[in-house]
Design a protein around this nucleic acid. Sequence first.
RNA 1: GUGAUUGUAGCUCAGCUGGUUAGAGCGCCAGAUUGUGGCUCUGGAGGUCGCCGGUUCGAAUCCGGUCUUUCACCCCA
Length: 456
Amino acid sequence: MAQKPSIPKGTRDFSPAEMVRRNYIFDTIREVFQKYGYMPIETPAMENLDTLLGKYGDEGDKLLFKILNSGDFLSKADEKLLAQKDSSRLTGQISEKGLRYDLTVPFARFVVQHQGELTFPFKRYQIQPVWRADRPQKGRYREFFQCDVDVVGSDSLFNEVELVQIVDEVFRKLGIRVIVKLNNRKVLAGIAEIIGESSRLTDITVAIDKLEKIGLEKVNAELLEKGLSNAAIEKLQPILSLSGTNNEKLDRLSYILASSETGIKGVNEIREVLTILEALELKTGIELDLTLARGLNYYTGAIFEVKALDVEIGSITGGGRYDDLTGIFGLKNVSGVGISFGADRIFDVMNQLELFPSEVTASTQLMFVNFGPREGLWCLKLATELRQQGLKVEVYPDSARMKKQMNYANKKNIDFVALVGEEEMKAGTVTLKNMESGEQFSVSPGEIAGKIRKRK
RNA sequence: GUGAUUGUAGCUCAGCUGGUUAGAGCGCCAGAUUGUGGCUCUGGAGGUCGCCGGUUCGAAUCCGGUCUUUCACCCCA
């Protein structure tokens, strides 16, 4: 052992057992996306740094993984900056590429760059890893997968509705009970407006987003610290403590926000989405939650978040509408709305609740023990036939000691083992052994498939 | 970026206030059983005690640094 191998902080290997489960989640999500007419795209792991910088706020810029230029990158760097060890300013000279931070910004870039080839409204999904140089902690990694669905080029609220339908269908298929939380940035903007703190919208949303986690008092304390007036915080209280059914909340809100044009627009949008959803009779519960803010600043309309009902884990899916994401890349007036499924957290939820169906983890159904070249070849032929009948079959590659071969089958949880030695070949039979019960019988090759299928 | 925390065999961990050849369980390999896995028994392999430096006659043990693990904050999926 020369050195202990390891992987970078916050990254993970996935074992076969984990991969079949992860793929089950990805496949399920993909299938639903396609059912609604969304098509897959992929973008490079790395983007030009100027595509990424400035899109996620100062905090986000810090969390970008930057890629060193190739070659003698230092020779072109500014001597003074080098001498001063000014890393932040030096970065621009020695790095021009970075790993993608999310899928939404690369998607916006994609839309602008390929606008001539696309048909709008453009519906796409994208399942790829993203990277953040965050410090890892519970349920947070430096490399993780996002499953995004977005539609751009349509202002219709039908799109919001459709995304909720997709959420409903995905989680129903996976067997996870969830609640969809809905809010609207326009409502939040309206609230900021009527309490006279329009310019502090971001501070307000970041603070009230924590309401559930840290409580009303601490939220107020944070708002005060951010420089909001006592009067404004006072005015905010009845809004934060709003309760009742969705409709009751909406009625109260339209009264409170009456003087804010933006606020009322937001209320109406929520009302319309909820009304349509009601007509569609979804299984998933939908709750208007004013404290739902989501950090991402580019959201301008609806905001979604999905929480699992049976596990404490935070949100497992989230998204919203952004009116001008492509604007920064030079394409104006293209509105989009999308959501992102958090595959890693969904995985954790399903594991905890043991929701993975047994077929998902099923391994090889039949393994032929290898007795030697002649027997092996005979088995290879039979295995080929059985595979054509849809069975999962393998032939042990080496004529190793039988104990070793049986052990392999046992460890791999293989259902049946077939023994074909000299005797069986002469008699034209196969000795089939059920690895679970240990029972063993002699059958003809034609009976094998039936015996194995009967077990299910 | 801030504050804690962890690191000893492939894995999970023990190793008392520094003292001789660093242990256990599980796993692995071999045998009991040369065409039969899981159970049992017997034997065996496997460790520069994360790394670098310091204190000391002597360091897995104490000190400093560094990396790593986990957790909270910031932020976020």
